[in-house]
């Protein structure tokens, strides 16, 4: 008789499937949107590609570093550099824009599951990270004579996907605390010094002692050690310590984001 009454209370399994579909659509359009936003996609992909080409391929004369070829070593560090940029700018700046203009309010007033929105942003950062790492790998193999096993590549991608999570959380904190106008500046102010201090531009062992002391507090340090270790370079510290460093950083960021979000709520 009445179709409206029947379709309103949906079964829980049905609801989960529906939420998954909403998430998939949200993620697809978020990815498409960022890809079409040239200022984002060109810089976020172009920057690590340019730096790797310059320092890993052109300036390198077949030397090796810590037992592995420079082209392979820098592939690992610029992979981290690239994925961090994708997460910080995609989420930090992208969500700051949504927050500032009332767009997120409109979405929150709709029946959109909030988790679908957050996960879509995070997965988009992962996808950009994977694209950057794959591009660098292709460049390294084609022009830097990098020997990479399939297993090593798979591990790099796995680190990229999991490694995007702590930086997505950092992006969330930036979006919540920093107004849109200053978000890109603040993101750079965190991104560039953090990359330097973690040995992404200059191998860690060449860094001055004072910086080496700070590094364990930086997520980029932990991720780059894991990434380089998986490529055959000797790792500073243990695998477990790096994973717990990343995990702790993620928890800290999500905690700050939660407090910042609650404060926003109370003021609205």
């Amino acid at each position: 008789m009445s179709t409206t009454a029947l379709s309103l209370p949906s079964a829980p399994t049905n609801g989960l499937l529906r939420n998954l579909r909403i998430f998939a659509r949200e993620a697809r359009f978020e990815f498409v949107r960022l890809l079409r936003t040239r200022t984002f996609s060109l810089s976020v992909i172009g920057f690590p590609v340019m730096l790797y080409t310059l320092f890993g391929l052109l300036m390198n004369r077949g030397e090796s570093l810590e037992g592995i070829a420079v082209a392979k070593y820098t592939l690992g560090s610029y992979a981290v550099f690239g994925l961090v940029g994708a997460a910080l700018f995609g989420i930090g700046v992208g969500m700051a824009a949504d927050f500032s203009a009332g767009w997120l309010e409109l979405k929150r007033a709709s029946p959109m599951p909030p988790l679908a929105y957050l996960l879509a942003k995070c997965c988009t950062a992962m996808a950009f990270g994977a694209i950057i790492v794959s591009l660098l790998t292709v460049l390294g193999i084609a022009f830097g004579h990098v020997h990479l096993t399939l297993d090593e590549y798979a591990r790099m991608i796995a680190f990229t996907l999991t490694g995007a999570i702590p930086f997505a959380s950092l992006g969330l904190v930036i979006a919540l605390l920093v107004p849109l106008n200053s978000a890109p500046g603040i993101a750079n102010l965190i991104y560039l010094p953090m990359s330097f201090c973690s040995g992404l531009w200059m191998p860690f062992k060449f860094l001055p002692h004072s910086i080496k002391v700070i590094a364990p507090f930086l997520p980029t340090y932990h991720l780059s050690q894991l990434m380089l270790g998986s490529l055959g370079a000797p790792m500073v510290g243990t695998t477990a310590s790096h994973w717990s460093g990343l995990f702790g950083f993620t928890l800290l960021m999500l905690g700050i984001a939660w407090i910042a979000f609650r404060r926003r709520e109370q003021n609205s």
Partner: peptide, 11 residues
């Protein structure tokens, strides 16, 4: 809901 939105995703 229709809100005054300053900026929506443009792309």
């Amino acid at each position: 809901v229709m809100l005054q939105v300053g900026r929506a995703p443009e792309m």
